[in-house]
């Protein structure tokens, strides 16, 4: 059979054309083959909401949705993204209103330093898109690729649960405040 030789190829110092959709907008640019999606998002498109903590797939900070699936932008060569749809933290909300996950992270104290937060929220979105009533075990399973050094994860569980309720049309959970010694504990 006669197939085209190769659809796409570059020299090591040549740029390749990349056309893809980022947060619903068609983007077209020339990229070096060595650049990962992370680098193109941050450096070529100025979308610095996507963070990085290792660039080796070991922390989860750079998570984005790639064709709707949770993926690590540091491990994907940008040239492999042609024709695909990328959603970053910047694409989570449409307009000034926060996405329910963003609102819940803000209300429940789930963002401290905020550096793992974009990846965490994107991963939580991936989960809630499929399972808005996820259990704690399901939240742990889905977010287990995201490291956080600030929160101890607890308030992240609470935020994801609250956002899941909002996505199901239920009122959000009030933020849990610590029990104060001598008073009846509030919250769980």
């Amino acid at each position: 059979m006669e197939a085209p030789l190769v659809t796409l190829q570059s020299g090591p110092r040549e740029k390749l054309r990349l056309a893809f959709a980022v947060n619903g907008e068609e983007r077209e640019l020339l990229v070096e083959p060595y650049k990962t999606l992370l680098e193109v998002l941050r450096e070529d498109l100025g979308l610095t909401g996507t963070k990085h903590g290792c660039e080796l797939g070991e922390c989860g900070a750079c998570a984005v949705l790639l064709d709707g699936e949770l993926a690590l932008s540091c491990l994907v060569p940008a040239v492999e993204c042609g024709g695909r749809a990328v959603t970053t933290i910047e694409g989570l909300r449409d307009g000034p209103e926060l996405h329910p996950l963003q609102a819940a992270f803000a209300d429940h104290g789930a963002a401290q330093c905020g550096y793992c937060t974009p990846g965490m929220i994107v991963a939580a979105r991936w989960l809630l898109d499929r399972k808005p009533d996820a259990t704690r075990q399901e939240i742990a399973d889905a977010l287990a690729g995201q490291l956080c050094r600030c929160t101890g994860y607890q308030q992240i569980y609470e935020a994801v649960e609250s956002a899941g309720r909002v996505l199901r049309g239920l009122p959000p959970l009030p933020p849990v405040v610590a029990a104060v010694h001598g008073e009846e504990p509030h919250g769980r």
């Binding site: 610095t48 933290i89 926060l98 905020g114 937060t117």
Partner: peptide
Amino acid sequence: PLRKVDVRGKVTGETR
């Protein structure tokens, strides 16, 4: 239990 003043940028990715 108010939102932190700087938290919005952290959940939207706008914090630099």
